[in-house]
Design a protein around this nucleic acid. Structure first.
Lengths: 334, 334
DNA sequence: TCTCCTGTCGAAAGCGCTTTACATGTGTAA
DNA sequence: TTACACATGTAAAGCGCTTTCGACAGGAGA
């Protein structure tokens, strides 16, 4: 391995000067040129461990990925958010470290991240709160999709999303609207349900408890079960708003299986706008989350936290707007 | 930060002994217990940079992700392969480092990985060979989906995939079979096309050159264009085998737009079995790649390379079998 | 009793880099 | 000429850890 000593010897300067030249500190043009020449010739590559050890700065961001579908990085929503995050972090020369997730033991994961000396952490979890509390984070950290009152969180405007969905449905003449909820220990699930209730009330519609069904962790399996419950009702809804696209897609399937049509008999609205949404039959009307932007905002926030660790400036939360994309799964009753 | 010195002082042993105790080297039970007690009490976390510096082992694997769709980690095929890779690597306590991709400059990326001191590299690229040659890899490296004659490569049995597709089509009475090829600078694209030609020949069918169209980099846009070309032909094929699901899906859309039916008028077979495949109308018959397994095999191979760096044992390539999943996009002509 | 072996532990060097504090050389003003 | 400021370069310490090699104690064998 070629080190800074080799460069020093080859160029005729001291290692201190070499270090300065490599870090754009003040050295004469002459010295800089000579040193860079040696660097080229000897194929020198600085050793980041040594640098990290000396500077206490690793230029790595730890990524904590927690989802309980078992698909990890392949998670359609998370992967897009992380990609947005990565793109922004790249601009500032940070690399991303995906640490092996010491099964469930959050404390362990945090220890590990500390061991790695990452400069910051981004946490993106699908499951409940109680599973990851009590972690004293003495490290710059940003959360995605967690309670909005916690500082350092980036999240979609879930309530507005629900409002958009309900508004659209009401505008199309629907009154009997059901909601397939996301698991009520997840932040997104809670917020979307709240937004749904609020929007219904705002329209003077009452929220029937039997129209509120739990769809679990946003999977098709959960959506399927929920929809079956809805269809088993005496008085069926004319529209269903699901808190996630996968659940909405499963709902559509079930409706068809029961011999009903979408959207003529039952309209469906989803949440997320995953790639699949536009390809199913009928194309799904849904609330679009801007995954790229969420990731980017998280990156900006984390960068800010890293830069201002000393100043105890309380970090705000950041809400990312959502939008409705109207396709063909909603029928106009009028 | 609490260091090994603090533990030494607190426990009454020297730092050398502490280090040994922490690395399961031989120390007396008494010493080990005392040291571990101090570790607990002081919340000591070893510093991986220092350790890496001293041992020249980082326990990190560099991941090089090259795709030209601009979706990075969110790539449906790659993300699943990487997830399989990650799951296996976790078993051996390796973390994954996603380095910022110094736009195109492969040489730069490799330098960066070297700088980071990763113990090994996994490269998963969608584009052509010429874009990444001349990189002298003095580091354990594994490639996914590259020429099978290069040592250290894991790839799907693309030729057999094509054979499965053609066989299935022929069994259903098709003779006029077209192939939407993946870009012919990509390894997978080349192999699948070769397999197609071979399989056709084996069935005594001739391969019409106008039935071989380039679909580009496996995107829907490319598939769409290719299918249009096929439909513009005087003598249309009765079946189309696309080298990728996205292309197949686009093809189905185009066929429908032209007022034809799938599969009654034209049958379609894809490759990959991405999640979308089962949700479109009609559900797509396709060749399934075992992404998890590919990732896992890559991990196994890399681990082996890392363990046996000295012994110049030439690394074999590893071919992962594919299978056909029959859904409803193929029509029986009989 | 003395010697030798074994098991335990510690001193110190070294991994490759940054950074502080100081030395040297050059130019400018008095 | 002397004095001083400034620009440039260097020696050396230190970041937190591993590892070699030698010191030492205690027990076994003669």
């Amino acid at each position: 391995m070629v080190t800074i000593y080799d460069i020093a010897k080859d160029s005729g300067y001291s290692i201190a000067t070499v270090s300065k030249a490599l870090n754009n500190k003040s050295v004469s043009e002459k010295a800089r040129r000579a040193i860079l020449k040696s660097v080229e010739e000897l194929h020198y590559t600085p050793n980041s461990s040594a640098r990290t050890l000396a500077t206490n700065k690793s230029w790595m961001i730890g990524v904590v990925f927690g989802e309980n579908l078992g698909i990890g990085i392949a998670h359609p929503f998370f992967s897009q958010v992380i990609e947005g995050f990565k793109k922004h972090m790249e601009l500032y020369n940070y690399d991303l470290l995906f640490v092996s997730r010491h099964m469930g033991l959050q404390q362990e994961t945090y220890r590990h991240l500390q061991h790695r000396g990452v400069d910051g952490i981004v946490i993106i979890q699908s499951f409940g709160e109680d599973e990851m509390q009590n972690i004293e984070m003495s490290m710059p950290t940003v959360y995605i999709d967690r309670p909005s009152d916690e500082p350092g969180t980036v999240y979609s405007d879930n309530r507005s999303g629900s409002r958009l969905a309900v508004n659209h449905l009401v505008e199309n003449g629907h009154k009997k609207i059901a909601h397939i909820m996301g698991n009520q220990t997840t932040y997104a699930g809670i917020e979307r349900a709240k937004g749904f209730r609020q929007a219904m009330r705002d329209h003077g519609l009452d929220v029937r408890e039997d129209y509120l069904v739990d769809g679990g962790y946003y999977s098709q399996a959960g959506g399927r079960e929920a929809m079956i419950r809805l269809l088993s009702l005496e008085d069926k809804p004319t529209a269903v708003y699901a808190a996630g696209d996968e659940m909405a897609i499963a709902a559509i399937k079930v409706i068809k299986e029961w011999g009903l049509r979408v959207p003529e008999d039952i309209s469906v609205v989803g949440f997320d706008d995953i790639q699949l949404a536009q390809h199913i039959d009928p194309p799904l009307t849904t609330i679009r989350q801007d995954k790229e932007l969420i990731g980017q905002q998280a990156a900006i926030m984390l960068l800010d936290k890293i830069a201002n660790q000393d100043t105890k400036h309380v970090n705000k939360t950041k809400m990312v707007p959502v939008s409705i994309v109207k396709r063909q799964s909603v029928h106009n009753l009028a």
